[in-house]
Nucleic acid binder design. Sequence first.
DNA 1: GTGAAAGCGCTAACAA
DNA 2: TTGTTAGCGCTTTCAC
Lengths: 344, 344
Amino acid sequence: MRAKKRATHRDVAKLAGVSPAVVSYVINNGPRATSVEARRRVLEAIETLSYHPSASARNLRTQTTRTIGFIYYDYHPQSTFVSPYIAGVLTGLSSALQEVRHYMLPYSVGTGENLEGLNELLHSGRVDGVVLRLAQDPPITDEVLEMISSAGTPCVIIERPGATRFGLSAVTYDDEGAAFMATTYLIEQGHRRIAHIRGDPGQLSSWGRLAGYTRALLDAGLPFDESLVRGGTWLPSAGAEGMRHLLDLREPPTAVFAANDQLALGVIEVLRDRGRRIPHDVAVIGFDDIPLAQELLLPLTTVRIPFAELGRRAATLVLRAVQDDSSECITETVPLELIRRLTA
Amino acid sequence: MRAKKRATHRDVAKLAGVSPAVVSYVINNGPRATSVEARRRVLEAIETLSYHPSASARNLRTQTTRTIGFIYYDYHPQSTFVSPYIAGVLTGLSSALQEVRHYMLPYSVGTGENLEGLNELLHSGRVDGVVLRLAQDPPITDEVLEMISSAGTPCVIIERPGATRFGLSAVTYDDEGAAFMATTYLIEQGHRRIAHIRGDPGQLSSWGRLAGYTRALLDAGLPFDESLVRGGTWLPSAGAEGMRHLLDLREPPTAVFAANDQLALGVIEVLRDRGRRIPHDVAVIGFDDIPLAQELLLPLTTVRIPFAELGRRAATLVLRAVQDDSSECITETVPLELIRRLTA
DNA sequence: GTGAAAGCGCTAACAA
DNA sequence: TTGTTAGCGCTTTCAC
């Protein structure tokens, strides 16, 4: 059954009694006009033969593939896609591409041999362009950027501004501004002692969020109290430990701004164990808006990062760059939003 | 810069002073042997020209693409990849493919027009085979299966046994058996009143898990008490509501087997609010082992579904089917494991 | 062990 | 409006 050979455009042409060129004109609606009659016959022949153009032949002929690579850095080879961050981007990117009949080819880098594979991917013409989502720090980053830049493949970076050195477009967001917004919101609610659980100091986001928190305090004329800043990783356990320390303070905070939702989860667990009421005794704000945040018994107030939107915008930018070689490279910053739920 | 044309095998041949055929022999290590000297010169020329073979040309010539499609059903277009289920499969599948230098092309179905796109994907020769991960019930399923089957593309189904009607291989797991195992474990711990929070009755898993729970009770000579079965969706809220009812019973259960981890999360929140100690007063077991399960302050005892492993096995099967057209179709069942943590 | 040449299936330039 | 044909870059058969 699979032995039966697929029909080609020649078969269609023969059956329809036209030349192969006309078949192409009909399929592609151009670049030449066709008579109504010819068109009808071709369409009919296509139908009866259940003809589908060969993607490989088209790709070769047109030197284009309708495919965009999604290059991502592999933090945890065991569970890459499980991270809501990459997953969200992937969702937006793939659906945006699918809407315009393009395909997405995910490719993970992180190990040396994958890097060689990436080079091949970039140079083999398998993709028309790429979207990049790398971690913000590891040394691999520059190597990858260098590789992509020198391959000349149109590229858009997600979540990493300032790749301007390589002349690449980017879609990013403003950690500092959002942290400022979240903290200011707490202040407006009347809080005066506001703690911050920070993330991994090895990642830029962590610093941006800390900076926004600090600026909000200073702007409001509140003192910056170092003992109110805890944490140091992105995991719930750090949130829990941080909160325990904070509660043991002589003057505990009445509100906590956690650098991400996982930390906030840990914070909340401890508050519950200690019998504190949320948000009455202690208010909590997270960051990211992971899916679980709204499914909790006590839905989490948090700053939403619209990951899917990042992916969609990246799709638009990269497609534009593919189409118009001379399009200038720009950095888009998507606005972040405070999602008010029940914890603050 | 991007205007500069890429080198082709002819350029390499010319520079190395050999014929194009030899370049091919060297690149592919065959099918003909080459002299050491010729090989050296070709390799050198490749290096200096930084030549990379064109994927499109190869695909056309060899009628193969080193690409496997991953077709998935789009429950939530907004957050497809966020589901740990699809995400886990994707992780295993993509890394297994990448290891053998293949590519993965995710394609979401769920809307009518995507279905037409799927047909094109299958017939255009853009992929050598596909892996399918559909929901277990929606009507779209049969249509998709029919389409794939008639396209003759090698295909492996994930998480859905009994597609034997279409003669497709499958990788699946045993819900009933695992539920039996989990419940039996609770019985062995001395529990006599064990509740079950079930999932969405529209999905097969939900029934399998209920069946395993029931069988375990009967096997142990315990009565099946209908009032101990609650739930009806997969969401934490159903777990919470179910647990509230259970606690209000005249004789509340001492253990709960939740049909998935989200439900277990809801169960646990309620137990905490009501001041019950876990697992001392009430033991809780979940199902799935979502990433969060082990990050909780009280890590969750649960049945692990090795999603990444499902993906890896599917990769193996589909690659085999692609290579060997006549390979028979088989169903692999991956074993499920009880992960003992702190809630039971 | 190597070269010449055919041809994978398509698009588009050229000619009519 | 249509037919003819070259050629995208590669692999592989055939001839040497």
